[in-house]
Design a protein around this nucleic acid. Structure first.
Length: 628
DNA sequence: ACGGCTTCCACT
DNA sequence: TAGTGGAAG
């Protein structure tokens, strides 16, 4: 359910940019013969010619729709070109589109001063407030000799759009000297966006549409109003009338059940109809948050900020296995899961090397149905666990998650289930703070140059980052002294070791860890009795792998080495917590050797490092696509 | 046989 | 937290 955000007092200029039938454009650029032709992109599927996922405007004229089957499209539009989505590992591979989408982001961010948010593969929000203000001061539209061509093609919500001298009207609107301050800012925004769209076209060959308004909601709402390759402006004076007649279902967030409920339960057909309800009344029906959100939405109010984010918050890949394709045994599930995990691993690996980001959580989703039980109520539960890097590990963990989910779903019965979809997702992705050093530096000594090589994936096929919250440690097999590695556990501390530790202060087994010179060494070394008073027994790397049917001891049974999660154990309460590194008592660190302290401070308080994301001057310094 | 595949968000 | 559900494109 949507929630209202406090809105900034000052008027903002927000733009929403939307690539027109994006997948098609990507294919048209790859094969220019397709330009101007009725074209659609299909996800290959031997069933009825596959499913359409993007349709060119030429094909739309024939009534071709997304969600049609390839065969259907051929029927209504015999001349249509159907292009298939690339396939790898027997599943659709969307990387070419992801990467093309980031090209646009690059252009946007290079040519825009304000914040830039990747809303999806083919959508961007921009906060142009500052740029518009600046323009208003330095080269306001009214003083411009010639208003930029593209800008004069804007659609202004207030203005009639069909009259012959439309462009003259638009020009007049953009330059109105008697406009209020907000409209003037919007006019500047419209010019900036027009320029940006031209630039995007020049540099990527992609056309896009845009909405320019005072908030995200309105910008998004109108960016699709005039397509393709056009932009629409929402002056604040036109908001009321515009919303009054707008069907509720057209509003973002109201396209689904909430919108249906408004219609069915409250008899609200248009956004204007919502005005007949008090905020309290709406809250009664839909709760405080959503009630307020609805009340504000009806008035065109939205405080949502444009976030400064260019990269996705998660990576996922999945596949469905409809009908007869359903998976009915472990080995078929395993082989598909392996493929999905391979792709996922590639993508997070690429995110790591390109963007210096690590993912912390692995989640498995599945859909299942039961034989003979037509409408089984029960759903296959999602399961997640800390994400361990390495294709093999991800595959192994994903399979465990599946087994665990299957157990919840199916109990201990053997057969009779069937899986109709599988997906794996990597989420909770964090930037590696720029000052971060690898733990290897300490393993091999300060003179080692291993730390600089740590993020250079060209030297190592697969990095294995260890993440305990914001603390970044990276052991790499090839770079460690063989002798310093615990054979059984690879580069990690075993769950068994951790268990043996719990509640017993610094354990004997830890000596092995200390021998490798991990950060544990420094933290635990500095832990005489006084730290116990602070409820710190030690900083322990422990495993929190997927729980499986047999419960907590399972990890032990399988000798699941791990790593990812740091926990702090309190002898006082007997409790164990996930460690938020920022919670470490500075006094603990204060007892370390000075040289080490300086390093660790950077790890422990990465946020206080004051390393604002600087935008460099080259494209690659701004952004590197995460795919492939 | 569900449109497939992603991504994001709020709630509990 | 992990897990669920809704929504969008």
């Amino acid at each position: 359910m949507p929630v209202a955000r406090p809105e900034p007092q000052e008027p903002r200029v927000i733009a929403h940019l939307d690539l027109d039938c994006f997948y098609v454009q990507v294919e048209q650029r790859r094969n220019p013969a397709l330009k101007g032709q009725p074209t659609a992109v299909v996800q290959y599927n031997d069933w009825k010619g596959g499913g359409l996922i993007a349709v060119s405007y030429e094909a739309r004229k024939f009534g071709v729709k997304r969600s049609m089957r390839g065969d259907e499209a051929k029927n209504v539009c015999p001349g249509i070109n159907l292009v298939q989505v690339p396939v790898s590992r027997d599943k659709a591979d969307l990387n070419v589109y992801r990467n093309a989408g980031s090209e646009v982001l690059v252009v946007a961010i290079l040519s825009t001063k304000g914040k830039c948010e990747r809303a999806s593969m083919d959508e961007v929000y921009l906060d142009l407030t500052d740029a518009a203000k600046e323009m208003l001061l330095e080269s306001p539209p009214e003083s411009s000799e010639s208003i930029f061509d593209e800008a004069t093609k804007s659609n202004i919500l207030d203005l009639p759009s069909d009259v012959g001298e439309r462009e003259e009207n638009v020009k007049a609107w953009l330059c109105r000297a008697d406009a209020n301050y907000q409209d003037k800012l919007l006019a500047c925004g419209a010019i900036l966006v027009a320029q940006l769209r031209v630039k995007v076209l020049e540099e990527t060959q992609f056309t896009c549409s845009a909405g320019i308004a005072h908030n995200k909601m309105l910008a998004k709402l109108v960016s699709g109003m005039h397509k393709p390759a056009q932009q629409t402006v929402v002056p604040s004076s036109s908001v009321q009338d515009f919303l009054a007649s707008l069907p509720v279902k057209k509003m973002k967030q109201l396209g689904g059940k909430l919108g249906s409920s408004l219609q069915g339960d409250l008899g609200v057909e248009t956004v204007g109809d919502l005005l007949g309800f008090t905020e309290e009344k709406l809250q009664e029906y839909y709760g405080v948050n959503t009630g307020t959100w609805l009340w504000k939405t009806a008035r065109g109010i939205s405080g949502e900020e444009v976030e400064d984010r260019l990269l996705p918050k998660s990576h996922g890949c999945g596949k469905t296995f409809p009908g007869p394709k359903a998976l009915k045994n472990h080995s078929s599930v395993k082989s598909w899961l392996d493929k999905l995990c391979e792709e996922l691993s590639e993508r997070i690996q690429s995110d790591l090397s390109c963007n210096k980001r690590v993912a912390q959580t692995l989640t498995l989703h599945a859909r299942a149905s039961k034989e003979n039980e037509s409408n089984s109520v029960k759903k296959f539960p999602s399961k997640s666990c800390p994400l361990r890097y390495g294709t093999g590990k991800i595959q192994e963990d994903a399979m465990k998650l599946f087994e665990s989910g299957l157990h919840d779903f199916w109990g201990s019965r053997n057969a009779g289930w069937s899986i109709t979809s599988l997906s794996v997702t990597a989420s909770k992705i964090f930037d590696i703070p720029s000052g971060t050093n690898s733990i290897l530096k300490y393993i091999k000594g300060p003179s080692s140059d291993a730390s600089s090589a740590i993020l250079d994936s060209s030297s190592t096929p697969e990095l294995t980052p260890l993440v305990d919250n914001n603390l970044y440690m990276t052991p790499v097999h090839e770079q460690c002294e063989p002798s310093s590695i615990n054979e059984e556990c690879g580069n990690s501390i075993s769950a068994k070791q951790c268990r043996s530790i719990e509640g017993k202060g610094v354990p004997k087994k830890l000596s092995k860890v200390q021998g490798t010179g991990s950060i544990l060494k420094f933290l635990s070394q500095s832990q005489p009795a006084q730290h116990e008073k602070r409820n710190f027994d030690g900083l322990i790397c422990s495993h929190q792998g997927p729980e499986s049917s047999s419960g907590a001891s399972e990890a032990e049974q399988h000798g699941r080495d791990n790593i990812n999660t740091a926990v702090v154990h309190s002898s006082g309460s007997g409790n164990t917590w996930m460690l938020n590194v920022e919670d470490i008592d500075p006094a603990v660190v204060g007892e370390l050797p000075l040289e080490i302290q300086r390093e660790i401070q950077g790890w422990i308080h990465p946020s206080k490092q004051a390393t604002p994301k600087k935008r460099g001057s080259t494209i690659s310094s701004y952004f590197s696509p995460a795919g492939r």
